[in-house]
């Protein structure tokens, strides 16, 4: 049975903190034999924003062991949900709550940044927006600064991150190189001033 499991760790809101969460959850996914969907989540909390990471798996018990171990080691929390209403969690209480909220958001596709998704490796370098919706998991294209009546080609630049919102899988796109579009999220986000 599919389940969705997440971990939330203190670590701040920087790009480095996001990369760390992403790295950890991707690693857990690989340890589970591969996870088709890996998602990061923004956590807004009184002590400051930070991140959670989640994945979808059918190996729930194994995932619980791994997520709990990592959460304990980092002072974070973990949470698991499935499609029947089962809810489990552990670790630091506040972060457990964030992790559970993130797992639910992943399951319900209400919030999240999709790092891994089915078919990702097979995406061509260039395709039309129509093809994108027809042939991939992307359900909607969000045009940011791109005319609605235009039919531009999408240049993936080998880096595609999707978003979950309103129960849908979306790809925001922006103008690229005068005439094409590219995913909104850029691989190089110019970490600010050497990170300080």
């Amino acid at each position: 049975m599919d389940c969705w499991i997440a971990m939330c760790v203190p670590g701040g809101a920087s790009l480095a903190a996001l990369a760390e969460v992403e790295h950890r959850v991707l690693g857990l996914g690989e340890a589970l034999g591969g996870a088709p969907w890996v998602v990061t989540h923004q956590v807004r909390a009184a002590e400051g924003g930070h991140y959670a990471g989640s994945l979808q798996t059918q190996r729930g018990e194994q995932a619980v062991v791994q997520f709990a171990e990592l959460a304990d080691a980092s002072g974070g929390g973990w949470g698991l949900v499935d499609g029947t209403g089962l809810v489990r969690g552990g670790g630091e209480e506040t972060h457990m709550a964030h992790a559970l909220a993130s797992a639910i958001a992943h399951r319900d596709r209400t919030e999240g940044r999709v790092v891994r998704f089915p078919g990702q490796a097979d995406l061509p370098e260039q395709l039309s927006l129509e093809e994108l919706v027809e042939r991939t998991v992307v359900e909607d294209v969000v045009r940011v600064g791109v005319a609605e009546d235009a039919s531009p080609l999408l240049r993936t630049n080998g880096y595609v991150r999707l978003e979950l919102a309103d129960g849908r899988v979306r790809l925001p796109v922006i103008p690229w190189d005068d005439g094409e579009v590219c995913p909104f999220e850029q691989r190089d986000q110019h970490p600010c001033c050497d990170g300080h």
Binding site: A13, R44, H50, F184
Partner: peptide
């Protein structure tokens, strides 16, 4: 160098 995305610190 405006290439960023919303973060956990961004105004939502």
């Amino acid at each position: 160098f405006y290439t960023g995305s919303p973060s956990a610190a961004s105004f939502p």
